[in-house]
Design a binder for these strands. Structure first.
Length: 275
DNA sequence: CTTGCGACCTGTTGGC
DNA sequence: TGCCAACAGGTCGCAA
């Protein structure tokens, strides 16, 4: 799925493109991943305006003028795409929002893991974010070294990579950027958190925002089928150091990058730099 | 509490 | 060419 940089890219583009636009009609073509159900969903949002687009962890938040927010998780293959009035939905286009300017906002999801849920905007913090157990935003002001390391130290018996992906000590990291941040910090993905040195922790704390910011700058990673709001591939894949580079030389030491299974996911790392 | 694995879906790729 | 297993950016729920 889109991880934090991809969701943030979509958020920025969507915010620019659809702020102030009215949702004049909602067409639900596949409603199993909507909450509430399609009839109620369409009823609540029809006629409202898109006020702003936010993001928390990997959730995209479409804030409406009527006090509701469409909370979207894109999971693996979900996409939001802006289209002109002549565009036709395909078999994976599950929701079409017809906008006041004649354009259409498509929610598209090949694997159907993604969801759209309505929440009162004022309830987001308590009923959505807290329930998901999200930790601090790595690019936000609440991402402090003290809090981050305290959270890690409480979970010392876990392996660092799966812990980074849990969203609890830090929000928004997935498989690609966990691998990238650990390479940057020269930490082995299997290393137990309790055995990390102070230098390791400091390095990891710095690497995470650096890796994410670089990816946002390149409009995300299109390793598989990710597309941004305008239907264009991201360009960050050219800048990846380990993800998808198994067998290729480490960009620091030329050793071949290896790929292993870790907690039923793939993990890529340099066996020499990341002992 | 932890880890591990199947489930949810569809499409693509690589091996034989 | 065909078939089939493995795999894919994410979580969730359940068993051990």
């Amino acid at each position: 799925m889109p991880e934090l940089p991809e969701v943030e890219t979509i958020r920025r583009q969507m915010q620019t493109a659809v702020t102030g636009k009215k949702i004049v009609r909602v067409e639900v073509r596949f409603g199993k991943r909507l909450r509430p159900g399609k009839k109620e969903f369409a009823k609540i949002i029809t006629g409202s305006e898109l006020m702003s687009v936010g993001r928390r962890a990997k959730l995209l938040l479409l804030n409406l003028s009527n006090g509701w927010t469409i909370v979207t998780h894109l999971k693996m293959t979900g996409k939001y795409l802006i289209k002109n009035n002549s565009a036709k939905p395909d078999k994976h286009t599950h929701v079409v929002f017809h906008l006041g300017d004649g354009r259409q906002l498509f929610f598209h999801d090949i694997r159907k893991f993604g969801y759209l849920r309505l929440s009162r905007t004022s309830d987001l913090e308590e009923k959505v974010f807290a329930r998901e157990g999200y930790g601090p935003e790595p690019l936000g002001p609440s991402f402090s070294y003290k809090i981050f390391t305290a959270c890690l130290k409480k979970r010392g018996k876990k392996k660092i990579k799966p812990l980074l992906m849990e969203q609890t000590c830090i929000a928004g990291i997935g498989n690609i950027y966990a691998d990238e941040a650990l390479w940057q910090a020269k930490i082995n993905p299997k290393q137990l958190v309790g055995t990390l040195s102070a230098a390791n922790l400091k390095s990891l704390y710095r690497s995470i925002p650096a890796v994410l910011k670089l990816a946002i700058k390149h409009r995300g990673t299109s390793a598989d089928n990710y597309l941004d709001f305008h239907g264009e591939a991201g360009e960050n894949q050219a800048f990846l150091k380990v993800y998808g580079r198994d067998g290729e030389p480490c960009r620091r030491c030329k050793t071949a990058i290896v790929k292993i299974k870790l907690g039923s996911r793939s993990a890529h790392f340099c066996p020499k730099c990341q002992k």
